[in-house]
Design a binder for these strands. Structure first.
Lengths: 373, 373
DNA sequence: GAATCTTTTGCAATCGATTGCAATAGTTTT
DNA sequence: AAAACTATTGCAATCGATTGCAAAAGATTC
């Protein structure tokens, strides 16, 4: 079948050599590579004795191919451990089967993101993509081009895009929206935004949290968070709504701009405690991580939680149950959210319209807010 | 230049139509797509009036092409917002410029991984890959095939692979190793392993932690962790070494099998506290997350930290500084680790040998272990 | 057995970029 | 001005899979 004649090395190793596959098979004899390996449809075609088109169709379960032939081909492919070359297929079909995921954060806090919330949602997205046979291309904000359209779509790296977080109303998202590209965003649904979002009912969440604090008897409730973030702005509205409904005025001096880190929560608490006289007896933080940082400062300052100040966070990260005192918080449906994001993007890819969706939140009462009566 | 004649719709929308690009340009007139868009090298070639090969070389800064021509071509490409089709290039060059990252965890604890440590290292890897012009394909353990070789290499999805965690000595890693594929693993360097690992000096870390506890006057130190994990096994060795060096016997009943979750840390602490009489006065947990769960239980049981029991963790996650009491821990060089993992894989890809590397760790003393004197 | 209709298979073009080799243009030498 | 180089550019094959159309094989009918 194949000549055993030796070929000059130059020929053997010249990648453009016409006998490359022959050469490869010779090399194989000298290495431990398994003998049975087919790297292209052409190889399978040769082995089975049919054309490449037949193999391609058979592997795709195309009913055009007789069942007998199909089984034969599939079996040979299996025996030879053959796997379709994803790149070649992508080139031909113009579909990559990849969804890119971009995690968007404010520059200040970008470095060393370690909010567990993020990992939860990324995990959910990964699972759901796998389920649909898609791969996930992950990138941090600093990826190459600042223009995602260039990077992912124009260069055919991905079929769709999922953006986590809107930052401070990032213009790049709006730019994408004007171009009718398949993408979805985790974050706040803004009345004027033209793109598909999935996110929690932030206003309701904050409303629940603050109302709960009021019910516990809090009179002066601080707000820790940066309302330049759309999601946090909605939480601020929920905060205001709850207060107004209780007939209270909004005291802007109780709002402390805070990044998404414990450090920031800690220092905001520090600033807060410097107010003389300290009138705050309740604290709502826009994330658990912030709340935990703040609690640290409170405990250090020998302020009782919830006795002196009751605390409520947002996210329900795993840790919030295990800190002391355990943290009352608003639970977001992260798993559901990740799943929905994927489905929205795939819907768009399929040409179906995808509507924004707001997820319900839930108040989880724990020790940090339960005042004794 | 182009005829303005109308073409029948069937022709217009037949993707195999020879006039596809013309058709596309007509369609463009009826949509809001920017006029200036070139989707292939051929388009640019036509516009500039040179051959495709010249364009390809010019865009790759090949010195064969005269500088004048090169600049001209590059400028046109820029004007038309042209981006190389990554898939086509990958097909031709047989290089994908993608590195796959697999996060490997034990099945029991796989769901809802939210260990911040992971996100840290993933972030570092993402940064470093970006720096080198690579994309990162992320997947959870449940990805399609169980055989990564098939999935990533044979199907040409990625050039290299990074595995985070070794699980309980996963056979899949060994299988990869026998096949001389470019990959690197975060985890323990085992004396008999044939593959390249990057990881912390686990034994030294545990040794430092336990020695520190001994210095604080602890007599009976518990160990929280699952030594079926290679990394944790090394930490157990460090634990034993420190005790032996202090002339103490190893008491196996002080080792509590614990998963990587706060829940598990909490319940292990619960088991520990049931021992009668309670003799433990020091606790070393193989991860901060576990330590935090355990501390929760201790605090609930009104056991003073560090007064009654001093606690040391491992990882130095962001939260450990902000819990109360703040957690003494062993800091791992996660950033450096991620960077090294990437470099090892790229070295292997370049045919260079890549040696395993062990990273130094550092004891960070905080409140949870600082006994009053 | 010839004619007609199905069922299967194969041919060849295509997706977009790269590259060895050959051809052309441009420069220098004699 | 012819010869001998060198600097640029183009031709055409290639990577591996897909698919419209045509051809071949098989089944059915008359």
């Amino acid at each position: 079948m194949k000549t055993g004649r030796l070929l000059p090395a130059s020929l053997l190793f010249n990648p453009r050599c016409r006998f490359a596959s022959l050469a490869a098979s010779i090399i194989n004899k000298f290495t431990s590579m398994p003998e049975k390996m087919a790297k292209s449809i052409a190889d399978i075609a040769r082995i089975v004795g049919v054309s490449e088109s037949t193999v391609s169709r058979a592997l795709n379960d195309n009913p055009l191919i007789a069942e007998k032939t199909r089984h034969k081909i599939q079996q040979v492919a299996r025996e030879h451990n053959f796997k379709i070359n994803a790149k070649a297929r992508a080139l031909r079909t113009q579909k990559t089967n990849v969804i890119a995921v971009v995690v968007l954060f404010k520059e200040r806090t970008e470095r060393g993101i370690s909010d567990p919330f993020l990992l939860d949602i990324l995990g959910a997205i990964a699972d759901e993509l796998t389920l649909h046979g898609y791969d996930m291309l992950l990138s941090n904000t600093r990826t190459a081009s600042d223009d995602w359209r260039d990077y992912y779509f124009d260069s055919k790296r991905a079929d769709g895009l999922i953006v986590i977080g809107q930052g401070e109303h990032d213009v790049r998202i709006d730019r994408l929206a004007t171009q009718d590209l398949p993408f979805a965003v985790w974050g706040a649904t803004l009345p004027d935004s033209q793109y598909c979002t999935v996110g929690s009912d932030n206003k309701m969440g904050a409303y629940l949290a603050v109302t709960h604090l009021l019910n516990q008897g809090c009179e002066h409730i601080a707000f820790f968070g940066d309302i330049a973030h759309s999601e946090m702005e909605q939480r601020w509205q929920g905060y205001c709504l709850a207060l107004q409904q209780a007939g209270k005025d909004i005291d802007e001096s109780l709002r402390f701009a805070t990044d998404f880190t414990s450090e920031s929560g800690y220092s905001s608490a520090n600033r807060m405690l410097k107010q003389q006289p300290l009138k705050v007896d309740g604290l709502f933080a826009v994330s658990d991580v912030i709340a935990l940082g703040a609690m640290k400062k409170l405990v250090e300052s020998e302020i009782a939680i919830p006795g002196d100040i009751a605390v409520v966070g947002f996210d329900d990260v795993a840790m919030s149950m295990f800190c002391h005192p355990s943290l009352t918080t608003i639970r977001q449906q992260t798993m559901e959210g990740g799943k929905l994001l994927v489905n929205k993007v795939l819907d768009k890819l399929a040409g179906k319209p995808a509507r924004s969706q707001v997820l319900d939140v839930q108040l989880i009462v724990r020790e940090s807010s339960r005042k004794a009566h």
